[in-house]
């Protein structure tokens, strides 16, 4: 029963990886990483049940809690780059 959803999740991870490698813009890659993160949370939850170890859900919980920090860092990174853009041009 869990195999169907595990399979769908892994295929989608492969699709997200393709999007991350193809690009074209950096934001597509950030989007792909973020999407892969959500898929990882779901995949870890499903695998925890697949292997009969529901007490290992802590891992999925850790990802669900802190995975989005990276996207905030990207936002901050581009905000800073935009702020110093006029000075950066030599």
């Amino acid at each position: 029963m869990y195999y169907v959803v595990t399979f769908a999740l892994i295929i989608t991870m492969a699709l997200a990886l393709t999007r991350a490698i193809l690009g074209p813009s950096v934001y597509d890659r950030v989007l792909a990483v973020n999407m892969l993160g959500t898929k990882t949370v779901l995949l870890l939850s499903v695998i925890a049940f697949l292997m009969g170890r529901p007490d290992f859900l802590d891992l999925a919980l850790a990802y669900a809690l802190i995975n989005f920090i990276g996207v905030f860092a990207v936002l901050e990174f581009f905000r800073n780059r935009a702020a110093k853009q006029p000075e950066e041009k030599p």
Binding site: M13, A16, L17, A20, I21, V26, R29, V30, A32, V33, L36, G37, T40, L43, L44, I47, A48, F56, L59, Y63, G70
Partner: peptide, 17 residues
């Protein structure tokens, strides 16, 4: 940097498996 984030996610799933 973004791809190494993906690398870490995939690695974690592998460790878990």
């Amino acid at each position: 940097v973004m791809l190494s984030g993906m690398f870490s996610l995939l690695l974690a799933v592998n460790f878990f498996l």
